[in-house]
């Protein structure tokens, strides 16, 4: 793209506000001129500021680390803030993530879903003793293990894996790759007192790890490139082994 010559973008957004009585979902197309380095964060804000003050969407960090702005970008879940318009055709569509409760337009309630997931899977370290002596030197951990835990802890709960998941689309109680990855993260953590039997209690059924059909769209759309394929298989092996224990 040379200086001064920018494409005319046609962005079709799903518009629907369930709060408005009688409203029905529809697509609305906005036209705007592309700019250098334009991200969907910039484009959507420009639309809201100059064309349509009612358009709803969520951004927080606008740097790809908070997970607020996941949406269906031309049919694929992704983070809008770090999607550059130059990587998209001149006409494209934006839609809210499926599965999650729709707030309005492109805004969905991933927070509510994630909190429920956390409560259901108990995604916190179940410490071996309740009180820690904060004055004493911390318990040691192998540097490699700490890094491995962090690699799984990089999940930003954006919901892309759930939106990309065929199982989750069909069955709303499916815990998704985000949940199974959390279990993998805590299972790896020696500070967590839980055993495989405990983890089985929360994910050992068809709405948990056995509901996964290994379509692996989660792995392919994860904006953080988490090793979901490996973790799903790993947890499946560990949980399946309990079937005979």
């Amino acid at each position: 793209m040379t200086n001064g010559e920018h494409r005319k973008l046609k962005i079709s957004c799903l518009r629907y506000n369930p709060q408005e009585p009688g409203a029905a979902p529809r697509m609305q197309t906005y036209e705007l001129e592309e700019a250098d380095g334009m991200t969907l964060f910039i484009a959507l804000n420009e639309i809201r500021e100059k064309q349509d003050a009612s358009l709803q969407f969520d951004f927080v960090c606008r740097a790809g680390i908070c997970g607020s702005c996941a949406m269906m970008i031309n049919g694929r879940p992704g983070l809008a803030c770090r999607t550059q318009t130059k990587d998209l055709p001149a006409s494209f569509t934006l839609a809210p993530l499926p599965v999650f409760e729709l707030i309005a337009d492109l805004s969905v309630n991933t927070g509510k879903w994630m909190r429920a997931m956390s409560e259901r899977l108990q995604t916190w370290v179940h410490m071996k003793s309740a009180e820690v002596d904060l004055k004493r030197i911390e318990e040691r951990m192998e540097p490699e293990l700490a890094e491995e835990i962090y690699l799984l802890d990089r999940c930003i709960e954006c919901g892309c894996c759930v939106a990309g998941c065929g199982s989750a689309r069909m069955r709303e109680d499916f815990i998704g790759a985000v949940g199974i990855n959390k279990i993998a993260r805590f299972r790896l953590d020696p500070r967590d007192a839980r055993t495989d039997g405990d983890y089985y209690e929360v994910i050992g059924d068809d709405s948990g790890v056995f509901g996964c059909m290994s379509l692996l769209a989660c792995h392919d759309v994860c904006p953080k490139d988490l090793p979901l394929q490996t973790q799903l298989a790993f947890i499946r092996r560990k949980m399946a082994a309990l079937g005979w224990k």
Partner: peptide, 9 residues
């Protein structure tokens, strides 16, 4: 929890 889901899987 039932072990059947694991066995069935």
């Amino acid at each position: 929890k039932s072990r059947w889901p694991a066995r069935m899987d």
